[in-house]
Nucleic acid binder design. Structure first.
Lengths: 132, 132
DNA sequence: CAGAATCCCATTGGATACTG
DNA sequence: CAGTATCCAATGGGATTCTG
């Protein structure tokens, strides 16, 4: 249904890689994923988002939302009233990102224990006993 | 087959969220994903990795590999010879991460055009015409 | 309420030089 | 070859203050 120019075989590998990692860097940053998932399926107001995420500063929420808006993942809807009301919601593109992101989240949930165990073991043999 | 303590219903939501985002932050950083994907399916030597990735500094490659090793995603195999030889390879846990990461990569490839277009549009209406 | 602007500290990460 | 150590610049990001 989505036109979504298919992978575009005209680009060479290094160039594609650059573009992909540029897109991934948005996903990579600390807040974008959190905001996308919090936005979930219904629009949310600015302060509603802030409260839902809790740990984010107002500055970073603004910056993150601007970035997501610029990339077409989030739509900003202003209702000019007093006090002003601004709602944010995922665009179709933004929603399409939820699938892969949730997959990563499930991986993290499923393997979090192993990762923690590995970290503990690594730290233990790094400090004590390793070679001292 | 893997024991992999299942999601552990004993943890409360905020705590789980913290752990998940801690794991995601490893995936989130600039190099980890690139290294994991470059490692792919066979072991690679240090300098082989460095050349394959190209843009990474030797310092960051070392740091990234240490982090991945600590998290149990990568195994470090030292062959004490002169000159020394060190191979890195994905552990089963590391390999299990490739699936979700590739899914994200495919998303980025598929939608890279839309994102770029959106950025261009956003930047255009931000600078010129918006309200000047 | 939503946000822009400023200040300032902490972390990231590159370049370079040195070692086993 | 495979690092470690040091220095330094750029960025990230919190706290606070001010505005429409």
């Amino acid at each position: 249904m989505i036109p979504a120019r298919s992978p575009d075989p005209g680009l060479d590998a290094p160039e594609r890689c650059r573009l992909v990692s540029e897109v991934l860097s948005r996903v990579g940053d600390k807040w974008s994923v959190l905001v996308v998932m919090t936005l979930g399926d219904r629009p949310r107001r600015f302060s509603e988002l802030k409260r839902a995420i809790g740990s984010i500063s107002q500055r970073m929420l603004t910056l993150t939302l601007r970035g997501l808006e610029r990339d077409g993942l989030v739509a900003r809807v202003v209702t000019p009233s007093i006090p002003p009301r601004v709602d944010y919601e995922l665009t179709p593109l933004g929603k399409s990102l939820r699938g892969p992101v949730e997959a990563l989240g499930r991986w993290a949930m499923a393997h979090q224990g192993e990762v923690q165990a590995s970290r503990a073991a690594f730290d233990a043999s790094s400090g004590t006993g390793g070679l001292a």
